[in-house]
């Protein structure tokens, strides 16, 4: 209880505090960013290790393509962060991405303008998200079950649209992927910009809007949040809508990235997204998490993927390593939570 004394405020400390005191204050204020910092440390360690092992790993090209290759994952992770911080889960995102992708490819194939198709994708994702949110909030269905229903629905719809892959030749969609804005050795694609924008907007919304703070409040204690007069019901529905919108956006980015819509896209992607979000320091129990953390989580995920490609090893190692890391992070989070409880 270093921050509380029983003396009145008059006698605030004048002596300069020691370093250990700064550390204690930091922990008291920012204990919840520790898992995110741990993920950052791990990312840096992996990059250093890869650099030493391969000689030329950390270069602008690898890092630029890291963002390009994982743009859709990043967008999904931002939406998922909102949901998980409220204490929910959204299993539908991979299917939503596939459905909006194949539906868009089909529409573009029939000559519908991209000015209609792209908003329609976003809207499609939003509608499925809304459905899940309403189920969770007003029908009191477990988020796991509600979003599982969303997963099956979206996947089924994707198969209804087409069983086969549909090529996309629309210039606007292709532009998203093929454009390279060069900054010296570095480059950005419009898809990468979209992903980064999603991160920035997501982070700002979480930190600086009443809605964002309510997301945390719901995760910390729904009943308390309600008693504080916060708009709990609206917030809980809205996070699934946001996740659905991110699903639609990811569908667009993935369609551009692969140049086609394919109904079997993104099977199991929801689990990769959850893994990345958790590695980035978001607690599955809700209440703690950062969009920036999810960015780090996705980068960790993507880097491991790239490292394994470089090594020419089986991609199944990817699963094993991610599995082990998840385990480790969950244990680390547990330890932090338990220690915080013991301190009281």
């Amino acid at each position: 209880m270093s921050t509380t004394t029983t003396t009145p405020t008059a006698g605030r400390r004048i002596v300069p505090p020691r370093l250990s005191e700064y550390a204690r204050t930091f922990v008291a204020r920012h204990a919840s960013v520790m898992p995110m910092l741990a993920a950052l440390v791990i990312l840096v360690l992996i990059l250093i290790g890869a650099q030493i092992h391969f000689g030329d790993f950390v270069n602008p090209r690898t890092l630029s393509s890291l963002l390009l290759d994982n743009a859709y994952l990043l967008i999904l992770a931002v939406g998922m962060t909102f949901v998980i911080v409220t204490g929910g889960i959204d299993l539908s995102v991979g299917s939503v991405m596939a459905f909006t992708g194949i539906a868009a490819a089909q529409m573009l194939d029939h000559g519908v303008s991209s000015a209609i198709v792209i908003p329609a994708m976003i809207l499609g994702g939003a509608v499925i998200g809304l459905m899940i949110g309403v189920l969770v909030q007003y029908f009191d269905v477990q988020p796991f079950i509600a979003s599982l229903a969303g997963l099956f629905l979206a996947r089924g719809l994707a198969y209804v649209v087409s069983l086969k892959s549909i090529r996309v030749e629309n210039e606007h969609v292709i532009w998203l992927q093929s454009t390279r804005w060069w900054f010296g050795e570095w480059y950005l694609t419009p898809t990468g910009v979209l992903a980064l924008l999603t991160v920035v907007v997501g982070a700002l919304v979480m930190k600086y809007t009443r809605f964002g703070r309510t997301v945390y409040a719901v995760g910390g204690g729904e009943q308390s949040a309600r008693l504080m007069g916060l708009a709990v019901a609206r917030t809980k529905v809205l996070v699934y809508v946001i996740s659905g919108v991110c699903g639609g956006l990811a569908g667009l980015v993935l369609t551009a990235y692969s140049g086609a819509g394919y109904p079997r896209n993104g099977i199991g992607t929801e689990l990769d997204v959850i893994a990345a979000v958790v590695i980035g320091g978001t607690l599955l129990t809700g209440g703690v998490g950062y969009v920036v953390g999810s960015l780090i989580g996705v980068l960790v995920y993507g880097t491991i993927h790239t490292v394994i490609s470089y090594m020419g090893a089986e991609q199944s190692w990817m699963r094993i390593i991610i599995g082990l890391m998840l385990l480790m992070f969950i244990v680390v989070q547990r330890v932090i939570v338990v220690r915080a409880e013991r301190r009281r």
């Binding site: 809007t209 009443r210 703070r213 910390g220 916060l230």
Partner: peptide
Amino acid sequence: IDLLPNLSVAENIMLGSEPRRFGLV
């Protein structure tokens, strides 16, 4: 206690009537 353990003391006191500028906290 009907408070939110995951948020800061300041938010627990002010949430619901938090000061905002241009709509942002």
